[in-house]
Design a protein around this nucleic acid. Structure first.
Lengths: 146, 146
DNA sequence: GTGGCTGCAAATCATTTGCATATAC
DNA sequence: GTATATGCAAATGATTTGCAGCCAC
């Protein structure tokens, strides 16, 4: 049981972060759900197993993981923050129809630059918005059948 | 006096948007302040000339200008929305030190694509974060003098 | 043992909503 | 004249803060 968490214990240890179950659970959740969940989704899902969990702890835990660059937050939705395990450089696509966020592997030489307009760049996020593959297909089917 | 607004009257007319003073004022403000202000800054500034102005109207006006693609909103700050007159494709840089947002003229062939990962792209925003030119200079001076 | 975390309740901040009045066309 | 915009106050929703008790080290 505990061994399932070995991977996440190591990540926290490597960053000298105190090991607590909320932190392990959140890390595990983000590692297993690459759907860019918001705080509410994470909270609701983990609350089932750990009824004493509070939203505050979710906020705090996400914050410390973010400060240690283990995860990142996305502002692409415009309302709530969404979270993502940081693995390799990738960008994001938001479907205006279904609201889902997808990883995009487009790379851009200019987007990896550490200097832009004379400013020192530490982070880059590319946000793409439109209609996702699945919603386009559904729309076509709707037109053909209707 | 009114002639100062001719340019903005035309923009609204061209988009078949009803002409009202809050809309003209907001458009003028954004055209003259390329600082990516938030609602509060716009509201506070215009309230001086038009004390009856309400925040709701600022929100409503920005919304209709955005729907007509005359302006765009940025989520780069992570808390409040910031607004920008839409003139040519450009991206944005947020200084983590002073909080200012700068336009970045970096272009990227891949970022203009209308298809990404099979999804249909309608909008693209590139967000860069780090330390701006001015804050870097200040920091250097501080080190040299201190 | 103790500093750092957790969890609750209350506070805050940006934004939205409902509705009466005013205004553009 | 009528549809639409404005402005106020109240509601909502995400996030933050203050603080008491608990747990990892």
């Amino acid at each position: 049981m505990i061994s399932m968490y070995k991977k996440y214990v190591k990540i926290l240890k490597d960053h000298a972060i105190i090991i607590t179950s909320p932190r392990l659970d959140i890390l595990k959740f983000l590692d297993e759900h690459h759907t860019h969940p918001d705080v509410e989704e994470i909270y609701t899902s983990l609350k089932k197993k750990h009824p004493s969990l509070s939203r505050t702890t979710v906020y705090n835990s996400l914050e410390i993981l973010k400060k240690n660059k283990i995860i990142q937050s996305l502002t692409i939705s415009g309302s709530e923050l969404r979270y993502d395990i940081k693995e390799g450089l990738h960008h994001h696509f938001l479907c205006k129809h279904c609201g889902r966020i997808f990883d995009i592997s487009i790379t851009c030489p200019n987007m990896n630059r550490t200097v832009a307009g004379g400013h020192h760049v530490e982070e880059v996020q590319g946000y793409f918005k439109g209609i996702c593959k699945k919603c386009q297909t559904k729309e076509k089917e709707r037109r053909n059948n209707g």
